[in-house]
Amino acid sequence: MKNVLLIIMLLFFSAFTYAQNSFQNKTVKILPKSELTITGDTNIKSFDCVFDMGYLQKEYPLHYIIDAPGRMRFKNAILSLDTKGFDCGSQPINNDFHKLIQSEKYPQILIELLEMRLQKPGFANAVVNITIAGTRKEHTFPVEFTEGGISNIKGILLLDIKDFKLKPPKKLFGMIVVKDEIEIDFKLVVQN
């Protein structure tokens, strides 16, 4: 009888521990005040491709777990950016940008949030998978945030386009060349 009672207690405590470590669910809204820009540079001048936030879905389910002090892991936290939503300021630059990211074949850029590691209050390192033109790479970069009913999350993610097997277009017989490093600058305003 003692063994049966011991087994029941162990099962109860394991179920309790599992419940403590299970993923929590939450829905967040990305508000229209949010901004996302991809900035690139050529040997002549820089260019900005601004994302129209109207292309985002309004609500995102978040599945997360706090599994260590200061560390939050996420499951299926994917921000899908429709490549049609980017405007680089002129049709020729738009065409070059879409050719670079192969938007006809790959119409979305995916940013999957994997983990946030708190560094100090208001600052964390985000671990994300970025998928561009069918190639996925993991990146870690710093973000700044404020918490509350309305949260602000901002950061700059530096990427090397060669990591995504992208070939920048060359203009004027190779005299104008896009540099390999681009940055994704974002300021997300999120309602919890």
Rank of each mutant, 00 (worst) to 15 (best):
Q57F: 00
C88R: 04
K29G: 04
P32R: 09
V128M: 04
K167I: 10
I78P: 06
K154W: 09
D48N: 08
I161F: 02
P32V: 12
F164W: 09
H98M: 07
S22Y: 09
G122D: 06
D160P: 12
I156A: 14
K33L: 02
I65M: 09
N192P: 01
I184N: 01
T42K: 10
I182C: 06
I184E: 00
V128A: 13
P121D: 12
S46H: 05
T131G: 10
I150Q: 15
E115R: 11
A133Q: 10
A15G: 09
V127M: 01
S80I: 08
L100K: 02
D82Q: 11
N95K: 13
A19T: 04
N129W: 15
N94D: 14
I8E: 02
N129R: 15
E147F: 09
F47I: 05
L81Y: 08
K154R: 14
K58L: 11
K84S: 12
N94F: 05
H63A: 06
T146F: 10
Y18L: 15
L110G: 04
D87H: 03
L172G: 03
F74H: 13
P107L: 11
L56H: 11
N152G: 10
Y64K: 08
G174A: 05
A133E: 04
T42R: 07
I7D: 00
G134A: 06
M175H: 03
L36V: 15
I153T: 11
A77K: 09
E104N: 02
E112L: 04
F145N: 01
K99R: 15
T42N: 03
Q57G: 02
F16W: 10
K179R: 05
I176Y: 06
L110R: 12
I161R: 01
A77V: 07
Y60F: 12
I44F: 12
P168M: 04
V189M: 06
H139F: 07
I44Q: 12
D96Y: 08
L172F: 13
K179I: 00
K170C: 00
G149W: 08
I101F: 07
V190A: 04
S151P: 06
T135N: 12
D82H: 13
N152E: 08
N125F: 07
F12D: 03
L114W: 01
K29M: 13
P121V: 10
K26V: 06
Q20E: 13
N95E: 11
L166Q: 05
K179W: 00
E147P: 04
N25V: 02
F51C: 06
L62A: 05
K33G: 10
E183S: 15
V50W: 03
Q119C: 08
N21D: 03
N94C: 01
E59H: 13
V128G: 05
H139C: 03
L113D: 09
V177R: 14
T37K: 12
P61I: 00
N94M: 02
S14E: 02
F164N: 13
L157R: 11
F16L: 12
C88N: 01
I184R: 01
Q20A: 13
K170G: 02
I156Y: 07
F141S: 13
